[in-house]
Design a protein around this nucleic acid. Structure first.
Lengths: 337, 337
DNA sequence: TTGTATGCGTTATCAC
DNA sequence: GTGATAACGCATACAA
C-alpha cells in the first residue's frame, strides 16, 4: 500500500474517493457530455481535495497529442535577436496564443550541427504537436525536413528554400516603398540604402523594395550592404558618403544599423534631417531615443508571433492554412525624415 | 495489421526485425551493459533501417523522468529583457548545458494571473524534471510555491522572498564597488548614482553597493531612482544635475539608463568624461557604441545561464547544491570614465 | 546474456 | 449514464 500523502494521486485515487469508476472521473476531467451533475460534483470535490493533476505522459501516450508546440531557433537567428526586441516580441505573441489554447512552448535552440540532429530526432518522435520555425538564414534545412516528416509546421519569414511550408511574414516591400515615397515627397534627389545581409529574407526583400521604389521614380540605386548590426551601419554610411557625397537621404534596413548611420552622419557634421534624411526599419525601442528620433517602418512583431501560433495550432488540429500570411507594415514619422 | 510504412515503429517493430526481444532492444537503446556486441549491432541496424525513435511519453510514463526543464519567465522580467541581450544570453547559456545533457527546455511565460495558476498546475503535474526561475521582481510567489511542491528549482538572481530555493547571482556589490573606486582613483569628488527599481534584486543590490562604497570613502550619497529604461536614465540625470550641479561622476545601474544619462549630459553640454564621468552596468552590446564608449561593469550572462542549468540538473538527479552561487563581475574600461 | 511478464496512468470501446 | 477492460509504448524485476 502506498503512502497516500506523498504519492501523487491518480485517476484511481480520485475514483475511489468519489465512489465512482476511473472512466467516470476521466469523463469529468475532460468535460464529456453525459455525466450526472451530482456525480460530476462529487468528482470535482475529490479532485480538489486530492490536488489531482492528470499525468501528461499517460495522457499523451494514449491520446497521441502532447499539447505542446516547439519553437526552433537557429543560432544565427538567436544572435540577430540578441540586440533587439524582435525575439522577445515574437515570443510573447506566441506565448499569448498558446496560453489561450492551453498548449506549452518547447524552445529548441539549434546551435551546433550535432544539436541539429538531436532536434530532428526530437521532432520526429512527435514530442510536439507542431513546430514554429524562426528560420532567419538562407539555407535552413528545417523547412524541407519537417515537410518530409509530415510534422505540422509554420515558418517565421518566407523560407528561402522554397514554399514547402506555410509562413508568416511582414510586408517588407510595401514598407520600404512607403519609406522611399515619403523621401521622394520631401524632394530628396539622391536616395541611398544600407541593406541587410543578402542571405536573409529581411535583407533581400527590403533591398528589393528599395530598388523597386527608386527605379519607379526614375532614380539610380546606391547600395551598401550591412549585417544588421550597429557597427555595420556606421561603416556602411561612411562608405556611402565617400562614394557619393551628394546623398540627401538614406533608407536603412534596420533601426540598429540606422543608429550606426546616424552616428557617422553626426561625425561628418551632416545635419539630420536637413542635409540627409534617414529612415530605418523595425521601430525598435531605441528608435524613439536616437538623436534625432528615428522615422522608421514598423512591423507588427507581436501580431506575427500570435499569427504563427494560430496557424500552427490550426495545422496541428488537422485544418489547412494559407501558404502565406503577409502582415502590413507602417511608416512611423519622427524627426529623422 | 497496421501499415508498416506509415505507422511509427515501436520497440516491438525493431525487435522483430532484429530477431530479438523488446527487452533487448530497450537495453541497447539505453546503453545497458551486458549486451553481446553482435546483438547490439543487429539492433542498431534495425533501428537505423526503421528510423526508430523512442516514444517520450511512454518512456516518461514508466521512468518518471521527462528529460525536460522548465524556464519560468514572469511578465515583468520579459519586459525588462526586451531591450537588452540579457534574456537571450541567459537562454543560450541554459540551452548549451541542457543540450549537453540531452534535456529539453520548456518555456513558461507567466503573464497573467490566470496563467499563473496554469503554470503551477503544469509544474505540479511533474511534466518537467526541474525548474529555472527568472524571478526578477519583488514578491514573486513561485520560489516558495515550488519549494512547497518539492520540485527541483533554482532561481536566477537572489529571490527577495527569502532563501527558500538555491539561486545563482552575480556580484552586484563587488562590481559597483570596483566602479566607484575607479571613480575615486580619478579624483572624482561628487559621485552620484542612478539606481534601478527597488523591487528588483539588481536594483537593490547595486544601490547598496554604491552606498557602501561611497560611505567608505567618507562621501555623501546622491541618489535618483530609475526603472532600467533609457528614458528613465535621461530624466534621472536631469534631476541629478538640477539638484547638484557640481556632480563630476555618476554610476548608473544599467547600460540602458546610462545611454539616457549620456544623452542628457550631451544636451547640457557637459563633457564626458572630462566634466562628468559615467559608469554603467551590464556591458550590453550598445555600451561599445555610445558616445563616448561606456565604461561599465560586465556581468557573466552566458555563464549565469550555464550555471542555472547545471544546478537544476544536479537537483533533478537527486544531488544537492550550494544555496547560492555568486559569479564575479568585472569593470570594463572604455572612454566614459 | 537474453527473454517473459508486469505495470506506469490515461483514454476509448464496449457492454450494461 | 456508468463501469469494466483493452490498448498506448516503454523499462525493468525476475526467470531462464
Amino acid at each position: 500500500m502506498r503512502d497516500t500523502r506523498t504519492a501523487r494521486p491518480t485517476l484511481e485515487t480520485v475514483a475511489r474517493l468519489a465512489g465512482v469508476s476511473r472512466a467516470t472521473v476521466s469523463r469529468v476531467i475532460n468535460g464529456s457530455e453525459g455525466v450526472t451533475p451530482g456525480v460530476r460534483e462529487a468528482v470535482d470535490r475529490a479532485v480538489e481535495q486530492l490536488g489531482y493533476v492528470p499525468n501528461p505522459a499517460a495522457r499523451s501516450l494514449v491520446s497521441r497529442r502532447t499539447d505542446s508546440i516547439a519553437l526552433v531557433v537557429p543560432e544565427p537567428a538567436a544572435r540577430m535577436f540578441s540586440d533587439d526586441a524582435f525575439f522577445t516580441g515574437i515570443l510573447r505573441g506566441i506565448g499569448q496564443e498558446l496560453d489561450a489554447a492551453d498548449k506549452q512552448l518547447v524552445l529548441l535552440l539549434a546551435s551546433t550541427p550535432a544539436n541539429h540532429g538531436r532536434i530532428t530526432r526530437y521532432l520526429r518522435a512527435r514530442t510536439v504537436d507542431g513546430v514554429i520555425l524562426a528560420s532567419l538564414h538562407g539555407a535552413d534545412p528545417f523547412p524541407s525536413e519537417l515537410a518530409a516528416m509530415g510534422v505540422p509546421a509554420v515558418a517565421s519569414g518566407r523560407p528561402l528554400s522554397g514554399g514547402v511550408i506555410p509562413y508568416i511574414d511582414v510586408d517588407h516591400v510595401g514598407g520600404v516603398r512607403a519609406a522611399v515615397e515619403h523621401l521622394l515627397a520631401q524632394g530628396r534627389k539622391r536616395i541611398a540604402t544600407i541593406a541587410g545581409p543578402q542571405d536573409m529574407v529581411a535583407g533581400i526583400d527590403r533591398l528589393a523594395g528599395y530598388r523597386g521604389a527608386v527605379a519607379a521614380a526614375g532614380m539610380r540605386s546606391l547600395v551598401e550592404i550591412g549585417d544588421f548590426t550597429r557597427e555595420s551601419g556606421t561603416t556602411a554610411m561612411r562608405r556611402l558618403l565617400d562614394d557619393e557625397p551628394a546623398i540627401d537621404a538614406v533608407f536603412v534596413a534596420s533601426d540598429l544599423m540606422a543608429e550606426g548611420a546616424l552616428r557617422t552622419l553626426r561625425r561628418e557634421r551632416r545635419r539630420v534631417p536637413e542635409d540627409v534624411a534617414v529612415v530605418g526599419f523595425d521601430d525598435a525601442t531605441a528608435a524613439r531615443s536616437t538623436e534625432p528620433p528615428l522615422t522608421t517602418v514598423r512591423q507588427p512583431i507581436h501580431e506575427t508571433g500570435r499569427m504563427l501560433a494560430q496557424q500552427v495550432l490550426r495545422l496541428a488540429s488537422g485544418e489547412s492554412v494559407e501558404p502565406a500570411v503577409i502582415l502590413p507594415t507602417e511608416l512611423v514619422l519622427r524627426e529623422s525624415a
